[in-house]
């Protein structure tokens, strides 16, 4: 991984609501064919965690140096 942050999405919990895609300011995330979220541009992640906080299904984890605990 070249970015400072790793975005992990667990497809077992993702319900394809697209909220994470909407809130990401850097367009890191995109939709798979089945609607679930995938990480498309991992290097662009700035670690803001908005996707994680907006994920109603606890499917997203941002790892790395975080702004908030």
């Amino acid at each position: 991984m070249s970015g400072r942050f790793q975005v992990e999405i667990d497809p077992a919990y993702c319900k394809a609501c697209r909220l994470c895609i909407q809130v990401c300011p850097k367009k890191v995330l995109a939709q798979r064919a089945d609607g679930k979220a995938i990480v498309e541009n991992p290097d662009d992640c700035i670690g803001c965690q908005l996707c994680e906080w907006h994920c109603p299904d606890f499917a997203i984890t941002i790892k790395g140096e975080k702004k908030n605990g």
């Binding site: 919990y13 909220l19 906080w53 994920c55 109603p56």
Partner: peptide, 28 residues
């Protein structure tokens, strides 16, 4: 996330329901 009972997830809430967001804020 360690405060969650992971064996009970995924939860019953619909896709895009705000309740999971509220629950996350509470647990943080």
């Amino acid at each position: 996330k360690n405060y969650l009972r992971w064996n009970k997830l995924p939860h019953i809430w619909c896709p895009g329901c705000g309740h999971g967001i509220v629950l996350g804020a509470f647990l943080r």
